[in-house]
């Protein structure tokens, strides 16, 4: 599917990440050190780069700054064992598009890479339609088929986020960051309860489910006019 470069010095971690991403159909190359990673990053075109914050030889942030300085806009996700929020801000300032603190679930990483690869094309669109779902962001209303949905503002935002990414797996952490716009790890069941409510509203008239749980990772919205 996508051509990815992983720059990570810990071999065991790298093997797990490689195995997982390859299992999801990505072509992933691995560099174990900073200078080597920088060389490979510039030598070829990549769909996305996943790099560790601390690397031997050349640390991840300097590497990223070098790439960005050279005009390389390849989406980059920074991995770090440092969970400090300032660290995160530093990572994003250096040109990272996303930041994931270790330890993380492999599913979370895959979902975030997916999110980087498939950024919504036009976020200014205010009338969204996915299968039988339809929302009008200006009027603040949602419809399924011909039925009006009684959605709270937050539920509308949540649905919008999912509808902009049909078929894409979004994790709980991503939802919390992007829909609630706060940054910490809430108990996972809180997001699930919100999703459950939204789901019930979407399926109130006996329609087939459109939001599906992805075990151990998060959720995905599947258009109901396509076969799953």
């Amino acid at each position: 599917m996508a051509k990815l470069l992983l720059i990570e010095d810990d071999a065991a971690t790298a093997q797990e990440i490689l195995g997982d991403l390859r299992g999801r159909g990505h072509a992933v190359a691995w560099a174990a050190a900073g200078p080597e990673g920088a060389e490979r990053a510039t030598a070829e075109a990549w769909d996305a780069i996943v790099l560790d914050r601390m690397l031997p030889g050349l640390d991840g942030l300097s590497l990223l700054q070098g790439l960005r300085g050279a005009g390389d806009r390849t989406p980059a996700l920074v991995l770090s064992a440092l969970s400090d929020v300032d660290e995160r801000i530093r990572g994003l300032r250096a040109g990272g598009d996303d930041y994931l603190a270790k330890p993380f679930a492999l599913g979370e990483l895959a979902a975030r890479i997916e999110a980087l690869l498939r950024r919504p094309a036009d976020t200014r669109e205010t009338l969204l339609r996915v299968g039988s779902l339809e929302i009008d962001l200006i009027a603040g209303i949602g419809r399924r088929g011909g039925r009006d949905l009684d959605l709270l503002p937050r539920e509308l935002t949540l649905l919008e986020y999912l509808m902009r990414r049909p078929g894409q797996v979004v994790t709980r952490a991503l939802l919390f960051e992007e829909v609630w716009n706060y940054r910490f790890t809430p108990k996972s069941n809180l997001i699930d309860v919100h999703l459950g409510r939204l789901r019930r509203k979407l399926e109130a008239a006996g329609e087939p489910p459109v939001i599906h749980s992805v075990r151990g990772i998060g959720f995905t919205l599947t258009p109901d006019d396509e076969p799953r």
């Binding site: 976020t123 503002p153 902009r164 992007e178």
Partner: peptide, 15 residues
């Protein structure tokens, strides 16, 4: 504006 609507990725902006 709720960040999800007009600026879906604003939560990611460094500051």
């Amino acid at each position: 504006a709720p960040a999800g609507i007009l600026q879906p990725r604003s939560g990611r902006d460094p500051l």
